[in-house]
Every structure is written in structure tokens, then in C-alpha cells.
């Protein structure tokens, strides 16, 4: 029994460790991939092939002086990055990342790879990520600077608009699987059609996956939807006035949110830890590979697609994405009713 507790604590610790380091790895990956896309080498000086560059970045940020504008709201200015990063970490709490396993017979009873298994897990992820917007909005407001305020304003409007399409896309998946627990949604995708096509919701919900992807990129404020930052128009948007550790927490939160989004997408549409010819005990490797691919796609999109204009963003969200998501939900419901009535 105590061994089981230790293992569970170990899983939580591992997830936390991976999330913390994910941002360092992703910063390096982002710069290397960007460089490759732009036919450059990217960071090359620190360590072999610039592999230790994130370490140098972190050291540099820690050494910097912490500045705060004189007229800033003292409490909220400090609270904002904390909210952002806390929401990012907490959101991962109900995301499972592997099947039940006994660790090759080490344990008597199988333990679930994941931190918490809640019967409304998907909604918990959604709720906690929607709290993350407060970090950005408050940072924008508390800085008492016009660029920051504009970044925060844009962020709040963008989040509300794209959350709708995002939630509607999720509703179609919930409809198909009949469960709000991420683990049960993954288990509903086990098995094959005609013996070789994996039963992933990607193939039942291609439109839903695209909508989820677009809304997910917008929710995490990544290019081409990085309006809260938009360095060409707003200097650096909501984090203009931030420096040192407080500044470092924002990109940290952004990268963790990317990981959470990719992990949820993997669970919802890509069959989680199920993969053809991979035994389910090694499913976590398949899971990591899928998440890695989605993260690569995130970076790929960022350095390929130029930023929208702000009015285009709103037009697109309300006039195209949301209707498409609603139609997708209606068709899914109709077909589901036809086959199951």
C-alpha cells in the first residue's frame, strides 16, 4: 500500500518535472525550428549545437533587476504572472498520459498513469485553462501602460470569442464517447476499423479537430493569433513592463499551456496512448510522440503563417469558426442518433 502511494507521488512529481522542463526544451526547439525554417543555424554557441542555451537564458533572467512601474498596481502586478503559471500547471492535473500499468509486476494492483481521474475531467481542464486568461488580463491592467492595457483587452475579447468554438468542438467528442472523463474518452477509441484503421476520433471528427486546433492556438495566444503580444504593434503587449523572474513566468505558462492543449488533443482526437502495433504498456511512448508532433506543429504554424489583423480575428472567430463548430455538432448529433436510435 505504501509502495503504491510512493509510486503515485512519483508520477505526480514526474509530471511536474516534465512540465517545468518542457518550457526549456520548447524554447530551444522553437529557436532551432525557426532557424531551420529561415535557413539559419539558430543558437549555436552555448554547449554543443547550442543545446545549453535555455540554461543560459534562465540564468540571464534570474540575474536581471526586477522592475515595476511606479504607478502600477503593486499587488496585481505581482499576482498576475503567478495566476498565469498556476493555472497552467493546474490544468494538467486531470489529463491522463498512459494506460493502467503495474510497472512490470512491481505493484499488485495496476495504477493509472495520470495525476487525478475525475468524472468531469475534461471540463476541469477547460475551466482551469479559462482561468489562465486572468493572468494576462491582469498583467495588462496592472502595468498601467497603454500597450499593456491594449494587450490585456485584446486577450480578454479573444479568449471569450474562441472559447465558444473550442467548447463546441469538445461537445461533439463528448457526444460520441458518452463521457466527460478523459480516460474513458481515450478508452472509447481503442480498436480498429477493418482491422487496420485505428478508431481515433480524428477520423470521425476531422472538422472538429481542425476547429479544436485553431481555437487551441488562439487560446494559447500563439501566432498567428498572438494579439496580446503583437510586438510590431504593441511593443510586447501585456508583458511590456515585466522583467526578470516575473517576466520569465509568462512564457513558462504559455509553453505549459501548449503542452496541455496538445495532450488534451491527443487524448480527444488521436487515441491517447493507443497506437497500432504498440502494446498498451508502452502506450505512454506513443502518447509522448503524439504530443511532441503536435508541439512541433504549433511551432511550425507560428513560423509559417503571418499574424491576422485584429478585426479579421474577430470576424473569423464569430462568423466562420463558431458556425462551423455548431454545424459540426449538429451533424454529429444527427448521425449519432441515426445509428444509435
Amino acid at each position: 500500500m505504501e509502495l503504491r502511494l510512493l509510486v503515485q507521488l512519483g508520477i505526480i512529481g514526474l509530471a511536474f518535472f516534465m512540465l517545468i522542463n518542457a518550457s526549456a526544451v520548447l524554447v530551444l526547439a522553437e529557436r532551432k525550428i525557426m532557424a531551420a525554417i529561415q535557413q539559419r543555424y539558430g543558437p549555436y554557441l552555448v554547449g554543443p549545437h547550442g543545446m545549453l542555451q535555455p540554461l543560459a537564458d534562465i540564468l540571464k533572467l534570474l540575474m536581471k533587476e526586477e522592475l515595476r512601474p511606479k504607478e502600477a498596481d503593486k499587488w496585481l502586478f505581482t499576482l498576475a504572472p503567478v495566476i498565469a503559471v498556476t493555472a497552467a500547471f493546474t490544468a494538467f492535473a486531470t489529463v491522463p498520459f498512459g494506460a493502467e500499468t503495474t510497472f512490470f509486476g512491481l505493484l499488485d494492483e495496476p495504477v493509472k498513469l495520470g495525476i487525478a481521474d475525475v468524472n468531469v475531467g475534461l471540463l476541469v481542464v477547460f475551466a482551469v485553462t479559462s482561468m489562465g486568461v486572468y493572468g494576462i488580463v491582469l498583467a495588462g491592467w496592472a502595468s498601467n501602460s497603454k500597450y499593456s492595457l491594449l494587450g490585456g483587452l485584446r486577450s480578454s475579447a479573444q479568449m471569450i470569442s474562441y472559447e465558444l468554438s473550442y467548447a463546441t468542438a469538445l461537445a461533439s467528442v463528448v457526444l460520441l464517447s458518452g463521457s466527460l472523463s478523459l480516460r474513458e474518452i481515450v478508452n472509447a477509441q481503442e480498436g480498429y476499423w477493418f482491422g487496420f484503421i485505428p478508431q481515433w476520433y480524428l477520423f470521425l471528427q476531422p472538422l472538429g479537430f481542425i476547429i479544436y486546433g485553431i481555437a487551441g492556438v488562439a487560446e494559447t495566444n500563439r501566432a498567428p493569433f498572438d494579439f496580446p503580444e503583437a510586438e510590431q504593434e504593441l511593443v510586447s503587449g501585456y508583458n511590456t513592463e515585466y522583467s526578470s523572474v516575473r517576466f520569465a513566468l509568462f512564457p513558462q505558462a504559455e509553453y505549459i499551456n501548449m503542452v496541455t492543449m496538445s495532450a488534451v488533443a491527443t487524448n480527444l482526437y488521436l487515441g491517447g496512448w493507443h497506437f497500432p502495433f504498440v502494446p498498451v504498456e508502452y502506450g505512454w511512448i506513443a502518447f509522448l510522440a503524439k504530443v511532441g508532433f503536435l508541439l512541433f506543429a504549433y511551432i511550425w504554424i507560428r513560423w509559417t503563417v503571418p499574424r491576422y489583423r485584429y478585426d479579421q480575428l474577430m470576424q473569423f472567430g464569430w462568423k466562420w469558426l463558431l458556425p462551423a463548430a455548431v454545424i459540426n455538432l449538429l451533424i454529429t448529433a444527427a448521425v449519432f442518433l441515426y445509428f444509435n436510435a
Binding site: V137, W141, L149, S156, I160
Partner: peptide, 8 residues
Amino acid sequence: VLFLFVVM
């Protein structure tokens, strides 16, 4: 968020 938006 709506309230926050209006306040801002």
C-alpha cells in the same frame, strides 16, 4: 471576463 473587459 466580461465585467473585467468593461472595467478596462
